[in-house]
Design a protein around this nucleic acid. Structure first.
Lengths: 288, 288
DNA sequence: TCTTGACTATCACGTTACGTGAGAGTGTAT
DNA sequence: ATACACTCTCACGTAACGTGATAGTCAAGA
C-alpha cells in the first residue's frame, strides 16, 4: 500500500489528479483511513490507472472512460470504440493540416498588406419556390455539401424533379463557435413530382414554399466556400451604404459545385429592406 | 449599422459570442443605445472581427489577440508571431500523428488481450555523488533529452569531466497533467574539474552532493522512455510485495541514449525502506 | 390602444480537468 | 515540545463561451 504521493511517483500522475479521480469515482483508493482520511493505494490499482490514462490519451473524456471501465463491455465493442476514436484522430490531424494551409494563406495576405476585394452587389427580386428541404446540424462546408449530395441522390432515386439550383439557408443566425450550425438544405422541385417523398424519407425531408423576397441583396462568389466570409463583408458594406437593413436569414445558392472547391460558384443572398438604422439615437422631432 | 443578430449573420459568429467579445472588450459595438442597451455594429467592424477570427484560428488565445490588435505592433513582429504559431501548429500535427501511432499500439495490445511483463528488480546501495545539475520544466521526454544533451555539451566545452551516467530526478512528485513536469538533470562530475561553471552558466547549473541511498529498488528498462510506465508497475509491485515503502524521488539513470528510442537503456531507481503500510488500520498493541 | 411575437438585454450558473492557495489535522524525527 | 513533511477538505480560478431565466424593446396587426 502506498500513500498518495508515492503512488503519484509510481504513476507519474499528480497528487491533485489522484484526489480528483477519487472525487469523481474514477479511481478510488483501495483504502481510506477513517481517522485521518489518508488515501492508500495498492500497486494493483496502477494497472487500472494506466488504462485510464491510455483512454484519456486516446481522446476520451473522463465520463466516457468511467463507462468504459465500469460497464465491463465485451472486447469487440471496446475495439469498436477505439477504432472510432482512431478515425476521429485522423480527422483531427487532417483538419490541423488544413489549418496549416490557412495559416500559410494568412501569412501571404499579411505580406501583401491589406487586400480589400470588392464584389459587385445586385438588388433583385426572388420568386417564391416550392422546395424539398432538410435541416442538418453540420460542422463544416465539406460535410454540408456531402449531406446535400446525399439528399439530391435521395430525391433523384425517388423520382422528384429538381427545377433550380440547390440552396443553403442559415437559420436563425444560430451560429455556434464550435463550428456546428444548423443549415437548411433546400432543393427547388416540381411540386407535382414530389409524391410521398416526405413519408419515404421518414420525415427528414419536408416540402414547403420558400417565400419570395422583394428586395434581395445578392452577390456572386467564385471560390471555395471556406473563404466565403470575405464576400459577406462586401455585401454588408453595400447594405449599410445603401441604407438597407437585413430582414431575414442568409441564402446561399449553389450555382456550381463540381471539381475543385476553388471553382465553386455561389450566390449569396440577404433579404433586405429600406430603412437604415441611423448612426445616432433616432432624432426626436417635436410636432409643430 | 446592424443589430446584433444581423451582424451575427454577416459574420457567421453567434450572438452570444459577439456579446462576449463586447464584455471582454475585444470588439465593442460602434454604438450602444443608452436607453435600451441595444448593440449596433458597423460593417467596418467586420474586418476587425475577421482578423480576430483569423488569429483565433491560428491558435491564439483571446487575451493574446487583444494585445496583438491593441498594441498596433509593427508588421514584422506580427509576421514573427505568426511564424511562431505556424511552427507550433506543425508540432501539434506531429504529436497528433504520434498519438495515432500509440493508438495503433494500444489496439494491438488489446487484440492480444492482457500482456503483463515482469521486470527483474534488484535492491542495491548507491553512494553519494557530486553532480552538476539543472532543473527544467519540460513537456515530454524528447525535450528532456534535448535539454540534457545541451547541458552535456555545455559541461564538456567548459572542461568539466563527467564521471558516471547522467540521470534524471523527478522532483517532489510534482507531476502535472498537462505533461509539464519539473525534472532535475544531474551529471556526476569530477568535483575538481568543476571550476566556476556555476557562474558561467549564469546560475542555471548548480553543483551539489546527490545523497547516497542505502536501499535502492532498481530495475533495468530497455526501450523507449515513452513506454517506461509499464516498468514502474513492476517496481511498485516489488516494493509492495517485499514490504518496503518509498522514501524519496525517483531517479532515472541513462545508461545508453543513442540511436533509436527503442534501444535506449535506463535504470529506474526508487529509494526505499523497510516498513510496510499495512492493509488495515495499524494494529494497536496493548502493552503487557 | 392593446397584444402578440420577434428580438434584445442582463444576470448567473454550467462546462472540462484539474491548479492553486488557505487553513487545519497527521506522522515522524529531533 | 517542536519542527517538518505530508495529508486532508473546502473553495475559488481557468477559457470561451452555452444555456436558461427573467425582463425590457420594437414594429406590426387587431
Amino acid at each position: 500500500m502506498f500513500k498518495i504521493s508515492d503512488f503519484s511517483r509510481l504513476s507519474q500522475v499528480s497528487v491533485r489528479t489522484l484526489r480528483y479521480y477519487d472525487e469523481i469515482g474514477l479511481l478510488k483508493p483501495l483504502q481510506v483511513d477513517e481517522g485521518s482520511g489518508y488515501r492508500y493505494y495498492s500497486i494493483d490499482q496502477l494497472q487500472q490507472l494506466n488504462r485510464i490514462l491510455a483512454l484519456k490519451d486516446l481522446g476520451f473524456e473522463l465520463a466516457q472512460i468511467f463507462q468504459l471501465l465500469d460497464e465491463d463491455l465485451p472486447p469487440a465493442q471496446i475495439r469498436g470504440m477505439l477504432r472510432l476514436k482512431q478515425a476521429e484522430l485522423q480527422l483531427r490531424v487532417q483538419s490541423e493540416q488544413e489549418r496549416l494551409v490557412r495559416v500559410e494563406a494568412r501569412l501571404k495576405q499579411i505580406e501583401m498588406d491589406e487586400v480589400d476585394l470588392t464584389h459587385e452587389v445586385a438588388l433583385k427580386k426572388v420568386k417564391p419556390q416550392i422546395v424539398a428541404s432538410s435541416r442538418k446540424l453540420a460542422a463544416d462546408i465539406k460535410i454540408k455539401y456531402q449531406l446535400a449530395s446525399e439528399m439530391l441522390d435521395f430525391l433523384k432515386t425517388n423520382g422528384v424533379k429538381q427545377v433550380d439550383h440547390m440552396l443553403f439557408i442559415d437559420h436563425d443566425g444560430d451560429y455556434r463557435n464550435d463550428d456546428l450550425s444548423v443549415v437548411e438544405i433546400a432543393v427547388p422541385v416540381n411540386s407535382s413530382s414530389v409524391g410521398n417523398v416526405v413519408e419515404r424519407s421518414g420525415g427528414r425531408i419536408t416540402v414547403r414554399e420558400l417565400p419570395g423576397v422583394n428586395a434581395m441583396a445578392s452577390l456572386l462568389y467564385h471560390g471555395s466556400p471556406a473563404t466565403m466570409i470575405e464576400a459577406y463583408q462586401s455585401l454588408g458594406r453595400w447594405i449599410q451604404d445603401n441604407g438597407y437593413c437585413i430582414t431575414g436569414p442568409c441564402r446561399k445558392v449553389c450555382l456550381r459545385q463540381e471539381g475543385e472547391l476553388s471553382a465553386y460558384l455561389t450566390e449569396i443572398q440577404f433579404p433586405v429592406e429600406k430603412g437604415e438604422i441611423t448612426d445616432s439615437k433616432p432624432t426626436v422631432y417635436f410636432s409643430g
